[in-house]
Design a binder for these strands. Structure first.
Lengths: 225, 225
DNA sequence: TTCTGTTTTTAGGTTAAACTAAATAATGAA
DNA sequence: TTCATTATTTAGTTTAACCTAAAAACAGAA
């Protein structure tokens, strides 16, 4: 099935929003896509006709299995491109994300396989998001928000939740990448900033931002009291 | 200026056809783009309005300097992608061409620069076509058709004129790539096939195909009589 | 339970890019 | 020079994807 880039964006958008809520409101979708709500309703009708969505009027939409398969194809394309641009050209991850936003609509199965192979069949992209397999299998990433940790806790960064280029660039400056180990030095009260040890340096990070960083908590090597 | 992929295809198509004739008929353009003639006329009017083309009714169109600059941007994108896919992923050149046909519409200046740099600022693509510089400068490729050579002549392949995937695949099997040295062993009369020595092997190539291979004739090293 | 404000959908319109059918202009042979 | 053929353009439709304005449905407070 050959889909327009627009339809691909709808499917991907719904897939992303579905990770939070089972039903996606047309307004939420409109917001994410930067399109007015009436336009979204019209497109939803069309996608229902194509059996890619189920629509409960006034309650929201959800992907059919067929729709999800197609959505995963786009997500896979996006993340493969991101990984490839970072790996092969050394693009900063925020720029890679922006480029992938357009390239994801132009990746044949053949080229996807070649890139996948060249990268050694990675399971996650540079931000720690899982790369769906060609068959649509997704390896879930587990962990807790960095903001949940308390003083003395140690965690390994596994994912950056939001892919806003500004956030990515900001975190990149701090050295916060998947795989990095973070030690919580101090947590200010009233949702204040966290003092962290990252990549050998001390950094101060706001709680807002820390909520977008997912870490795998680690048991401290040196046992305390 | 942000152009639609369609407009980009028109500009590139006109540019390609202009290398043969100064004026490009709307019918020739329609044929190349796989679009009906009336549709082309309509689009031509629009591009004239945008000052990208000059149109002499019933005589054809030609690019304005502004139009040519934009056309060269697409040609550059296409050839950079081709070179990159062949170099970095080892794609066969016919497949690289097909992929580049879609990727050319999705290459930012920034990414183009990165790719150009990673490739070491090449001046030609895998088929020997010049890659326009960011400023629109084109290094012309000189040479004669392989079909022009006669028995005993030696030439270095510099370009494959046509980029039809079938032709590229066919020539690839014979080892006919830019840079390869060809020795003409025999030429059959009445436009018959040529017997050639390429990459250490003897090959037979039809005159039709030999017309699409551009070579730089070389003076034989071992002087004759 | 009723009202009010928000969310969602319906109605109607626009633009880009294609199409077919018909008309007009150019060209080359008799 | 005239006429038939071919090339090109004009006229009118269609489809996809968006928009604004207005109507309808829903949800929470009085």
């Amino acid at each position: 099935m050959e889909l327009s880039p627009q339809i691909e964006d709808y499917l991907k958008g719904i897939y992303m929003l579905q990770t939070r809520d089972r039903q996606v409101s047309t307004t939420a979708l409109a917001g994410r896509l930067g399109i007015t709500a009436p336009s979204v309703t019209a497109m939803v009708h069309k996608l229902v006709e194509l059996e890619l969505l189920v629509h409960e009027p006034y309650r929201g939409v959800s992907l059919t299995p067929k729709g999800e398969t197609l959505a995963l194809r786009i997500v896979r394309a996006h993340r493969l491109w991101e990984a490839y641009l970072v790996e092969s050209l050394g693009l900063p991850w925020d720029e890679a994300h922006i480029e992938a936003e357009r390239l994801e609509h132009v990746l044949s199965d053949l080229l996807a396989e070649r890139i996948d192979e060249a990268l050694g069949f990675p399971t996650i992209d540079p931000h720690g998001h899982p790369i769906p397999s060609p068959t649509g299998h997704v390896q879930p990433v587990t962990g807790v928000a960095l903001a949940e940790l308390t003083v003395g806790d140690v965690g390994v960064v596994v994912q950056i939740r939001d892919e806003t280029p500004e956030l990515l660039r900001y975190l990149g400056e701090f050295g916060v990448y998947p795989g990095e180990v973070i030690l919580v030095l101090d947590v200010a009260p009233f949702n204040g900033p966290m003092h962290l040890r990252v990549a050998g340096k001390t950094q101060v990070l706001g709680r807002e931002v820390a909520n977008h960083v997912v870490v795998q908590p680690e048991v401290a090597i040196e046992g305390g009291t």
